[in-house]
Amino acid sequence: MKIYDFKGFPNPARVRIALAEKGMTDRVEFVSVNVPAGEHKLPAFVAKNPSAAVPVLELDDGTTIAECTAITEYIDNIDGTPTLTGVTAKERAVIQMMQRRAEAELMDAVGTYFHHATPGLGAKIELYQNREWGEKSRDRAIAGMRYFDRVLGTQAYLAGENFSMADITAFVGLGFADFAKIAIPADLPHLHAWRARIAARPGVMAS
């Protein structure tokens, strides 16, 4: 298997954590796609992912899988013992729900702020910016943090009592928020404590 990504970027980090959590990092060949230099927009990469975004998983038979959730689903289930995406119908549904909320209310919100209300990746990449939309997205990201703090006040992880891909997404989202200079409000003790616990996981540290 190959993973096309750019190390250090938020979405590639999600897949790298999932691989480390599954003990599968050494089963993958990482191929760097220099996003700041525009390599993700070249025809050879767009043929693998028409959305021109990293990461992309390429299987040995040539199949390409984009989108972090889809890649994580494959990684988690390939060995027949899923640990990140749930086992029962209820677990899978709740994890998918919280995964989407972690994306929409944190990852995507921070990303929109970064790409629209800051210089982002520079003028050659950021061809259109709407600062007002970016600022509103910053407010949405902070509201998302407050929501997750409430959730974590009643359970250990975002989707219940077990670590899941929703936790990976939210954890990386908070790291992206740090980079974008969106501070986690100090009055969110559950979120801060959860973040410290996730950061100490061997899989997270190894990635």
Rank of each mutant, 00 (worst) to 15 (best):
67 E>M: 04
155 Q>P: 05
71 I>H: 00
75 I>W: 01
108 D>L: 15
110 V>F: 05
105 E>Q: 14
75 I>T: 00
123 A>C: 08
143 A>N: 12
60 D>R: 11
178 D>G: 11
71 I>Q: 00
141 A>L: 04
138 R>G: 09
144 G>N: 01
75 I>S: 00
99 Q>T: 13
120 G>I: 05
133 W>H: 10
152 L>M: 10
179 F>W: 13
92 R>F: 03
169 T>D: 06
144 G>L: 03
179 F>A: 13
183 A>T: 13
174 L>K: 06
89 A>T: 13
193 A>Y: 11
81 T>H: 15
64 T>M: 13
154 T>L: 14
153 G>Q: 11
100 R>A: 12
159 A>S: 11
77 N>P: 02
141 A>V: 01
99 Q>P: 01
99 Q>W: 09
92 R>L: 03
154 T>K: 15
126 E>Y: 06
124 K>G: 08
80 G>V: 05
82 P>C: 08
116 H>Q: 09
156 A>E: 14
91 E>C: 06
162 N>W: 12
191 L>Q: 06
66 A>H: 12
96 Q>M: 11
72 T>S: 02
171 F>M: 06
123 A>K: 15
116 H>K: 06
133 W>L: 14
180 A>K: 00
84 L>R: 01
167 D>N: 08
161 E>D: 15
70 A>N: 05
124 K>S: 14
106 L>M: 13
188 L>I: 09
158 L>Q: 02
166 A>Q: 01
177 A>M: 05
135 E>L: 12
128 Y>C: 07
81 T>Y: 14
63 T>C: 12
138 R>M: 12
69 T>F: 08
67 E>G: 03
88 T>I: 09
96 Q>A: 14
76 D>V: 03
178 D>F: 13
70 A>R: 06
153 G>C: 11
67 E>F: 03
169 T>I: 12
66 A>T: 08
70 A>V: 07
72 T>F: 04
153 G>W: 11
103 E>I: 00
154 T>C: 12
135 E>C: 02
84 L>Q: 04
152 L>S: 05
173 G>S: 07
176 F>E: 01
94 V>H: 10
75 I>R: 00
174 L>F: 11
68 C>Q: 09
71 I>A: 01
118 T>R: 09
118 T>C: 08
123 A>G: 07
162 N>M: 14
164 S>K: 02
173 G>L: 02
193 A>S: 14
86 G>W: 03
173 G>T: 04
75 I>Q: 00
123 A>H: 10
132 E>M: 08
118 T>Y: 08
89 A>G: 14
179 F>Q: 11
143 A>F: 10
91 E>Y: 06
127 L>E: 13
89 A>S: 15
185 P>Q: 07
183 A>Q: 12
171 F>D: 01
